[in-house]
Design a protein around this nucleic acid. Structure first.
Length: 110
DNA sequence: GACATGACGGCAG
DNA sequence: CCTGCCGCCATGT
């Protein structure tokens, strides 16, 4: 079987574990999976995650708390809208209180 | 088979 | 403090 699928599955599993109203970052997930430094691969996984309705990719942003991947959603505003529905405030593509809303799997799942 | 790109992150200058 | 470059893994051309 494709070992890479296991990695993707792990990413999805972690992303699915992100609590509502919380967000995570690519680097944090990559770090948790042991692929620290390969944040890009997580982003790639998110791209594939688009076909999985169970994967809240909108809760995953970059380390800056910036909705860099919103352009990959159905609409450029879909990501922000969904986050706002969960009570997350976004200012110009940037999540406010990102430091407080940040959900670190390496810590929360410790 | 090699080159270029990408939803990122860290380090150097 | 801000800007720029390199590194990571995989995919597409």
């Amino acid at each position: 079987m494709n070992d890479k699928f296991n990695f993707f599955e792990s990413v999805y599993e972690v992303v699915k574990l992100i609590p509502k109203g919380r967000v995570s970052s690519y680097g944090a997930i990559a770090n948790y999976l042991g692929a620290k430094g390969s944040a890009r691969m997580v982003g790639w996984a998110m791209n594939a995650a688009h076909q999985y309705a169970d994967v809240p990719a909108h809760r995953v942003v970059n380390r800056q708390g910036l909705l860099t991947g919103k352009h990959h959603f159905a609409t450029p505003t879909a990501m922000q809208e969904m986050l706002e529905q969960e009570g997350i405030r976004i200012k110009d593509e940037q999540i406010e209180d990102f430091d407080k809303l940040f959900w670190n799997p390496a810590v929360e799942l410790l």
